[in-house]
Amino acid sequence: MAQVACLSLWPVLAFAQSSDLAQNLADCKNGRETCDRSKLNQLESADVALAGHVRNVSDCRNGYNFCDHLKLTEPEAIALAVADHQRNVSNCNDGRGSCDPSKLSQSEAREMAVAEHQRNFANCKDGVGDCDRSKLSPSEAGAVDTAKRQLNVSDCKNGTGACDHSRLTPSEKREVTAAEHNRNARNCENGWEECDHSKLTPSEAGQTAVAEHQRNLSACRDVQETCDYSKLTPPEAKMLADAEHKRNYTACLKGHGYCDPSRLTPSEARAIQTEHKPVLR
């Protein structure tokens, strides 16, 4: 009987052992500390060695500290040197902190200088990043001044950014004033903040009043908290009252939704009683 029990457990034990070996192989291939190389056969050891080599090459290419240059083949070392050089060139041209100018060739150093100059020029024009005006040519300085003036005009027109009205020309001031007026009218008509009704023309005030009335009617129709019933016209108030009465009757009739029986007419109440009256058999 004991022999039969052992035989029945053998597949389970074998599967567990196989699973452990597979996990150990995966750990070894991934360079984990839980790897036990003594459990590997010759073929698995070769696979693990290959995986370790590939991982080391990847670490070296990515500049990780785990890289062991001594384990690279000559072609791999050359490819790594080329990749490192290109990455340094890219970092220098992009103005990244990991740039090492001492490793650049003369032509690459000139390219880096051009890239730095263009980046400084762009920063000055866009008003972002570090700008050193002393490095700009006279024409570039003029272009930067023009760009800043245009940006200021745009900020003033759109009501965004750091608008400086004192830097506007008379014609620009007129354009900005018109833009500010239109923006205020639009804010008032749409019920947005920063609306100054006192700055509206009579026609704009009329349009705003119509828009506000329609918004209030919509809010009342949708039973929103912003509804002001006192601003409804008699026909609108009656329309909403009729709609609410119909809704209440339907709710009472169907037994679904808020129902206020006190608001039913006598005929509606009788109809509901008839509808809900049990059928005698």
Rank of each mutant, 00 (worst) to 15 (best):
D47I: 04
D47A: 12
D47S: 11
D47Y: 03
L50C: 08
L50T: 14
L50M: 13
A51D: 01
A51H: 00
G52A: 02
G52T: 00
G52I: 00
H53Q: 09
H53V: 03
H53F: 02
H53C: 04
V54Q: 11
V54N: 10
V54E: 12
V54H: 09
R55S: 09
R55N: 08
R55Q: 06
R55L: 03
R55A: 11
N56S: 05
N56Y: 01
V57H: 00
V57R: 02
V57I: 05
V57N: 01
S58L: 09
S58N: 14
S58I: 11
S58P: 00
D59C: 01
D59K: 01
D59T: 02
D59N: 09
C60F: 02
C60I: 06
C60A: 07
R61L: 15
R61Y: 04
R61F: 09
R61W: 08
R61S: 10
N62V: 05
N62I: 07
N62D: 12
N62C: 07
N62H: 11
G63C: 03
G63Y: 03
Y64T: 14
Y64S: 12
Y64W: 13
N65L: 13
N65K: 15
F66R: 15
F66N: 15
F66K: 15
F66P: 14
C67K: 03
C67L: 08
C67G: 06
D68K: 10
D68V: 10
D68I: 06
D68C: 07
D68T: 10
H69A: 13
H69N: 14
H69L: 15
L70C: 09
L70Q: 15
K71Q: 13
L72V: 04
L72H: 07
T73P: 08
T73I: 00
E74W: 10
E74L: 12
E74Y: 11
P75I: 06
P75L: 08
P75C: 05
P75E: 09
P75M: 06
E76H: 02
E76V: 01
A77H: 15
A77G: 11
A77T: 12
A77P: 11
I78Q: 13
I78D: 12
A79V: 04
A79H: 02
L80N: 02
A81E: 13
A81Y: 07
V82D: 13
V82T: 11
V82P: 01
V82L: 04
A83Q: 13
A83L: 11
A83D: 12
D84S: 14
D84Y: 09
H85W: 02
Q86E: 15
Q86P: 12
R87V: 09
R87G: 10
R87M: 08
N88T: 06
V89S: 00
V89Q: 02
V89L: 04
V89E: 00
S90G: 06
S90F: 07
S90V: 12
S90M: 05
N91V: 07
C92D: 00
C92E: 00
N93Q: 13
N93S: 13
D94Y: 04
D94C: 05
D94K: 10
G95M: 06
G95H: 05
R96E: 08
G97P: 01
G97K: 13
S98Y: 15
S98R: 13
S98H: 15
C99P: 03
C99G: 01
C99Y: 01
C99W: 01
D100E: 11
P101M: 04
P101F: 08
S102F: 06
S102V: 05
K103F: 09
K103R: 13
L104Y: 01
L104V: 00
L104D: 04
S105G: 14
S105W: 01
S105A: 03
S105R: 04
